[in-house]
């Protein structure tokens, strides 16, 4: 691949989404000064949102940090738990058959419905929010990891068996490294979900921190009919999830970029 071609591809990767962003903000602006000119509390213009961002920057940033901490903790717990659970299930048909259905149930259980139970057990506060975030992030990690661990080629499995490699060796040298692309795919999906989980958790539970995270602040802004602030906070929440996703993608590229297509 020539440098010029690579440059053009990068330029396109940046220019195309940027164009969409500009078009979107333009449309938003036009709507806000025409249809919604008299109803700014429904759709404030971009300028009003930026002003709100500027005015309450300290509050928004503090809230973002709280949500970040909760989402990150939930995500880390889900990663640890998810990969371990999948590793165990990959080692035993019986374990897999016994527990996989419940992993699926974990995903279909309406978190909103169990939130009161979580509060009952863990109280109003950070811990409960982290648990909600972890529950929402868990399934894609388990599922993708398991898929990856089970996808070793049969020839390689036979090669390892022929040279008397034990379970652990086959796991370390064949199954686990081969599963890394799938694990990263799962982690990428869950990156955004963990932020969603933290915010939903704050909606349902509140937040241990006195001023709360973005979820709590969004409810406050709604109560005060401060739509520009609400918009500003939604934008921060979105970029928090996006930043998570980018960070995980970068780590993934570092880990598997030298051999796997998906990371190039």
């Amino acid at each position: 691949m020539t440098d010029r071609l690579a440059f053009r591809r990068t330029a396109l990767n940046i220019a195309a989404p940027l164009f969409v962003a500009v078009a979107f903000v333009g449309l938003w602006y036009v709507l806000s000064v025409t249809v919604y000119a008299d109803k700014a509390f429904l759709l404030p213009g971009p300028v009003a949102v930026i002003k709100a961002m500027h005015r309450d920057f300290g509050t928004i940033l503090a809230a973002t940090l709280v949500t970040f901490k909760e989402a990150f903790s939930g995500y880390a717990a889900a990663t640890l738990l998810g990969i371990s659970a999948a590793a165990l299930m990959s080692q035993s048909r019986l374990l897999e058959r016994s527990f996989y259905p419940y992993a699926v149930l974990m995903q279909t259980v309406p978190v909103v419905a169990v939130a009161p139970l979580i509060v009952l057990w863990f109280g109003y506060g950070e811990t409960s929010v982290i648990i909600v975030s972890a529950i929402i992030s868990l399934f894609p990690i388990i599922n993708n990891t398991l898929l990856g661990l089970q996808s070793a080629s049969s020839s390689l499995v036979e090669l390892f068996a022929m040279h008397k490699a034990g379970r652990l060796t086959a796991f370390r040298k064949l199954r686990l490294p081969g599963a890394v692309p799938n694990i990263i795919a799962g982690l990428r999906i869950s990156a955004g979900l963990s932020v969603v989980g933290a915010i939903v958790g704050e909606f349902l539970i509140g937040s241990g921190n006195s001023r709360g995270g973005l979820g709590v602040q969004i409810i406050f802004a709604q109560g005060r009919m401060d739509t520009p602030l609400l918009f500003a906070e939604v934008i921060f929440a979105t970029f928090l999830g996006f930043g998570f996703f980018i960070a995980v993608s970068l780590v993934g590229r570092l880990l598997i970029g030298h051999w796997h297509e998906s990371a190039r």
């Binding site: 080629s153 020839s155 090669l159 390892f160 490699a165 490294p177 081969g178 890394v180 030298h258």
Partner: peptide, 24 residues
Amino acid sequence: FVFQEAALLPWRNVQANAELVMEL
């Protein structure tokens, strides 16, 4: 054993692949 599909470890470079069965 040599298989029809070369059965290499895609995350290992050529040298490390050549060492695999000796390693096992």
